[in-house]
Nucleic acid binder design. Sequence first.
DNA 1: TATTATTGTATCATTATGTTACAATAAGGT
DNA 2: ACCTTATTGTAACATAATGATACAATAATA
Lengths: 248, 248
Amino acid sequence: MNKEFEQQESNINGEGFLPGLAIDTVIFGFHDNQLKVLLLSYKNSSLYALPGGFIHDNEDVNQAARRVLESRTALSDIYLEQFYVFGDYSRYDPAPLKTIMKARGYEPPHDHWLLKRFVSIGYYALVDFTKAVPAPDEISDSCDWYSLDNLPLLMQDHRQIIDKALETLRSNLDQKLIGFNLMTDEFTMGDLQSLYETILNKKLIRAAFQRKMLGLGILERIAKKWTGGAHKAPYLYKFISNKVPTEN
Amino acid sequence: MNKEFEQQESNINGEGFLPGLAIDTVIFGFHDNQLKVLLLSYKNSSLYALPGGFIHDNEDVNQAARRVLESRTALSDIYLEQFYVFGDYSRYDPAPLKTIMKARGYEPPHDHWLLKRFVSIGYYALVDFTKAVPAPDEISDSCDWYSLDNLPLLMQDHRQIIDKALETLRSNLDQKLIGFNLMTDEFTMGDLQSLYETILNKKLIRAAFQRKMLGLGILERIAKKWTGGAHKAPYLYKFISNKVPTEN
DNA sequence: TATTATTGTATCATTATGTTACAATAAGGT
DNA sequence: ACCTTATTGTAACATAATGATACAATAATA
């Protein structure tokens, strides 16, 4: 779903789009020591869904994914990566989209292109929670962050898509140093450790974690952060951006 | 391309198939200390290509990939995994397929489904070279193994697809212990090390490699292998299959 | 000024990996 | 039979990475 939905709806043959192929994007953010994903809710529906969209017939697939991402977060230059194609026949279920269209007062023909079988390419994005501005469009009620351990009921197989995205993020975390894309510009070592612990779902050893991160040589120490706590103030760090993967 | 090509050719609207979506499979084997891939050559054409195919409109995408793989190697229960979707607009080039069809004496209509833009889902498979039986079909001259460091000229972006597959294999090798799928049933430690060295494209330290492999606890020592060489005979090993990932 | 919690880092322990060395041994030659 | 040769299996030690503990430094607050 994207801003062009009205055109897509009345365009019953899907003219201008690649047929049967969709994009779903798992947009991860990190806030309050919790991993979050950006979800939409549809008007007149209790269904939540991942931001997604379709591919113009003269557009690169990766470019389409970036377009979807930017339309939802108003961010560019974001870490974005394909992770899996969801193509089981059992995904095929025209009911939810039919419901959405009917709720909008539109009665789609039987062979409307949006009611056919779709294969979906899964992407995940890592964004700075504080910079993303969740933007709903005309067919969605809301576009908001939801904590991963408290997700609402999701449309179709979107729950499995999120699970697979998280699994991919987890296994790429150490190898690719992509975690920094989820941090704010400045952060403490505690913040960073908390992010790693949340993604990997396990406690890490503080001393070893700090030693390793500093040893990577991609952190620059800025200043101290007075939190107001009755204890030594932590340093703030920023990461040296040209040493960390952002765009592919 | 698969055995049903004649039907696909005369079926100008692609009835029964998902439109615009294809599968390309990089089938890896290992022989003579070299990585090999299975390639087809088309009749009346100098073009080589990856084994590929299309998805039935009532078939899982992963199942379709397995069907393609089995039709080319006569093997089942093979390690097979999605690795990337190739969806750039610049891939779109109807010329090669047009040439192939014309060479078969078939003049396709302008809007033949096979001449439209395709997005291709890349899979890679790891097979035991000694067990796979390369099988061409009626539109291919040949179906044979080619050494990775001596590939013929390939159709479209198939060369990039192979490169990306190798990159994925390389980065998954240690983590997932999938290398064993490329070995014969019984092998020496030297064979295994040679495989790793070839995939990773670097020399490994013999003592450390052996220690690590034995430490994994997935190898069973069988017997000695008398090679005829004037030296100590190496042991043969087989891997304890229920400890190694094969199918997903 | 004492108390408190947290941070940064040093220190040592443990594990993993790199490196060297060497005994075991299966041909082949004499 | 015995010596030579190349390769294997593994021990032994060196170095690097990680786990675990300890402790000084230090911002609040009382």
